[in-house]
């Protein structure tokens, strides 16, 4: 019995997770920095570590989350530090965020993803960002913020799998298509099909199976599914209201099949990212770490 479950799991790993990544900003001598902070975002699928020197991005890593949150946090940090010569004890202040934020043993404080993504997007995309959409592995957040990255309105849906990375994972798994190929393939269709009509992921999966059985090519099913996903996320965004500039963070931002359809659906431009969109939460956490460390120094 357990073997069957494990086998299905192994298959999943191949299709639905984004590749891991790591980077160091060149030309920064961290030993001269007066304050070094760290942000750790332990998500349901992947975990990120961001190191900042005097509030500037120095290094980051994005790894898959394991079964154990503290270990995933530690692994992400170690990988970010790799080759920099910096050690964990050189960091002055660490903030944890994300689903597993309370399980980051070396963090001084835990802050919600809402606050961190707003801060992080403000830093990464610039102060013109007013609306942030973060679609993670198990949730979807819409955040409106001011020019300093302070949250003005937010709404978060983590109850229902529809419109989250998990909804995509289900289709990637069902059709055996790696998640990074879904976007491209979904545009290789003769014409855009109508969206899958069910909202609930369980029903949408059954609907997709039915479409395949009725002779729809795989790409067409993907297009119908991506379109439904875009529509679903779009509805949530409209509830919070759209203001320019509009930016996306999280794994779904890498799926052009959803991003382009969402832009069309809402008739908006979505800022193109120039970095790994999955690190935004950890960037925000590292920025809060700086503010909190300075606040403590003053005391």
């Amino acid at each position: 019995m357990t073997t069957g479950t494990e086998k299905r799991k192994e298959k999943k790993v191949e299709y639905w997770k984004w590749p891991e990544s790591r980077s160091t900003t060149p030309g920064i001598d961290w030993t001269k920095a007066s304050i070094i902070t760290c942000g750790i975002d332990v998500g349901s699928v992947s975990s990120q570590a961001v190191i900042m020197t005097d509030g500037k991005l120095f290094a980051y890593s994005s790894r898959r989350t394991g079964y154990n949150s503290p270990e995933s946090a530690r692994n992400a940090l170690n990988w970010a530090l790799e080759g920099t010569g910096m050690k964990p004890e050189d960091i002055h202040y660490t903030v944890g965020t994300g689903y597993g934020r309370v399980n980051v043993p070396f963090a001084q404080r835990a802050i919600t993803e809402i606050a961190c993504h707003a801060r992080g997007a403000n830093y990464l995309y610039g102060p013109s960002v007013r609306t942030i959409l973060d679609v993670g592995g198990q949730d979807c957040k819409v955040i409106r913020c001011d020019e300093r990255g302070k949250v003005e309105t937010f709404l978060m849906n983590d109850k229902c799998a529809a419109g989250t990375g998990r909804g995509m994972e289900i289709i990637a798994d069902l059709l055996s298509v790696p998640v990074q190929d879904i976007g491209r393939l979904s545009f290789e269709v003769d014409e855009e099909p109508p969206p899958v009509s069910s909202t609930c992921t369980i029903f949408a999966k059954a609907e997709a199976t039915g479409l395949l059985e009725s002779g729809w090519p795989l790409n067409r099913v993907l297009a119908a599914y991506c379109r439904a996903m875009a529509h679903r996320i779009g509805e949530l965004i409209l509830r919070a209201g759209v203001a320019k500039d509009f930016a996306m963070t999280g794994g779904m931002a890498k799926n052009e099949g959803v991003v382009k359809r969402l832009a069309k659906e809402l008739n908006i431009d979505i800022l193109p990212p120039s970095f790994d969109t999955q690190i935004a939460g950890a960037v925000g956490a590292a920025l809060f770490a700086k503010v909190l460390a300075e606040k403590e120094q003053k005391k």
Binding site: M1, T2, T5, K9, Q138, K159, C160, A161, R166, G167, I170, C200, T201, I202
Partner: peptide, 15 residues
Amino acid sequence: AQCAVFAESEVVGLI
């Protein structure tokens, strides 16, 4: 979990 999809992972955890 209040969602049939998320409940499935919770059930895997219970197993």
